[in-house]
Design a protein around this nucleic acid. Structure first.
Lengths: 121, 121
DNA sequence: AAGATAATTGAACAATTGTTCATATAAATG
DNA sequence: CATTTATATGAACAATTGTTCAATTATCTT
């Protein structure tokens, strides 16, 4: 049972002004889900290796990514689909070979900021 | 059975130069794990809400975060532990109340870059 | 057309995750 | 000291995840 006051905030908060202020700036549920999904796309070691590789070389095919990282084509292909779904990478098919690259400069910036954080520890 | 040439690269790659070049710039396994963990810390909607809240108000206690987000203290406390373990937040205990804040300016930058990415779609 | 190659896909599996519930600790108050 | 309040924690649970394996699609070569 949660009691609420006239502003529809729970009575039982410690610093009412802060709570009210932050609540007013709150984004939608959908927004936070999408934001979390974006970070989640970068939250697996195999995927960080793929993104890192594509930061070094603009375009790489599936097999070369697998060779660089040292795992199977299948594992890489599955992960590339995840990255594709989240619009972190795009691809360009030439004959049998599919070349992948980072989708836009924002991805570079976001990833670079993560790199900086880890490197400057 | 993977055959290798004298440079210890798999023979079967499409663009040998690129593969060699990226391999030379490769970071350690540990590095990619830690990088992935950092992004993973931001990869859950509850945690993005917590971080967003702490971007708006420098310091918030557990109960107020729970009130803002609309979930239980316990759920928030568990998630704060995750964020603490990944050094994304720090805390300051005053009597019964624990105030949480973002650990350093890097976290702000990284999170802000994610926000920008999502907002500019 | 047949075979080889590059990539994708689906099913299955163990492993990990986030929440809830109950309980525990720790500090303030009566 | 007993109670209340604020937070933390452990166990348990369903849900999700990442890889492997086998099979499939699509394209090139002969």
């Amino acid at each position: 049972m949660i009691k609420r006051n006239s502003d529809n905030f729970e009575i039982s908060c410690v610093e009412k002004d802060k709570v009210k202020s932050v609540k007013n700036k709150m984004k939608t549920e959908k927004f936070f889900h999408y934001l979390a999904e974006t970070f989640k796309a970068m939250s697996d070691p195999t995927r960080t290796k793929i993104i890192y590789s594509l930061c070094q070389e603009k375009e790489l095919c599936v097999r070369d990514i697998a060779t660089i990282i040292g795992t199977t084509n299948s594992a890489i292909s599955h992960q590339l689909r995840t990255l594709r779904n989240m619009k972190l990478v795009k691809y360009n098919k030439v004959g049998k070979v599919t070349f992948y690259s980072l989708d836009d400069i924002h991805i570079n910036n976001l990833f670079a900021e993560g790199l900086r954080h880890v490197e400057e520890e």
